[in-house]
Simulated scan of single mutants.
Amino acid sequence: MSLKEQITEDMKAAMRAKDSAKLGTIRLLTAAMKQKEVDERIELTDAHVLAIIDKMIKQRKDSITQFEAGGRQDLADQEKAELAVLSGYMPAGLSDAEIQAEVQAAIAAAGAAGPQDMGKVMAILKPKLAGRADMTAVSGLVKAALAKG
Rank of each mutant, 00 (worst) to 15 (best):
3 L>R: 07
4 K>T: 05
5 E>W: 02
5 E>I: 04
6 Q>R: 11
7 I>L: 05
7 I>G: 03
7 I>V: 05
8 T>P: 02
8 T>I: 13
9 E>D: 06
9 E>I: 05
11 M>H: 11
12 K>Y: 15
12 K>C: 07
15 M>P: 01
16 R>C: 01
17 A>D: 13
18 K>P: 04
19 D>Y: 10
20 S>L: 12
22 K>R: 15
23 L>P: 01
25 T>P: 00
28 L>K: 14
30 T>P: 01
31 A>N: 12
31 A>H: 10
31 A>R: 10
31 A>Q: 12
33 M>N: 03
33 M>I: 05
34 K>Y: 09
35 Q>K: 15
37 E>T: 04
38 V>F: 11
38 V>G: 03
42 I>W: 08
43 E>K: 13
43 E>Q: 14
45 T>E: 02
46 D>K: 01
47 A>V: 05
47 A>T: 07
52 I>D: 03
52 I>F: 05
53 I>K: 03
53 I>A: 00
53 I>Q: 00
53 I>Y: 03
55 K>D: 15
58 K>T: 08
59 Q>N: 14
63 S>K: 13
64 I>G: 00
65 T>Q: 12
65 T>Y: 12
70 G>C: 00
71 G>F: 07
72 R>M: 14
73 Q>A: 00
73 Q>C: 00
74 D>G: 02
75 L>P: 03
75 L>Q: 10
75 L>H: 08
76 A>I: 02
76 A>R: 05
77 D>S: 11
77 D>Y: 07
79 E>G: 00
79 E>D: 11
80 K>Y: 05
80 K>C: 00
83 L>Q: 10
84 A>S: 04
87 S>D: 10
87 S>F: 07
87 S>P: 07
88 G>K: 06
89 Y>A: 03
89 Y>V: 00
90 M>S: 03
91 P>L: 02
92 A>S: 11
93 G>T: 09
93 G>C: 04
94 L>H: 08
95 S>P: 04
96 D>M: 07
96 D>H: 09
100 Q>I: 04
101 A>Y: 06
102 E>A: 15
103 V>C: 09
103 V>Q: 08
104 Q>G: 02
106 A>R: 08
106 A>Q: 09
110 A>T: 07
110 A>E: 02
110 A>G: 05
111 G>V: 07
114 G>S: 13
114 G>P: 05
116 Q>K: 13
117 D>N: 06
118 M>S: 12
120 K>N: 06
120 K>S: 08
120 K>A: 13
122 M>Q: 01
124 I>W: 01
125 L>F: 04
125 L>D: 03
127 P>S: 06
129 L>V: 02
130 A>P: 00
130 A>R: 04
131 G>T: 01
131 G>N: 03
134 D>E: 11
137 A>H: 05
138 V>C: 01
138 V>P: 00
139 S>K: 13
139 S>Q: 11
141 L>P: 00
144 A>W: 04
145 A>K: 14
147 A>E: 12
147 A>D: 09
147 A>V: 09
148 K>A: 14
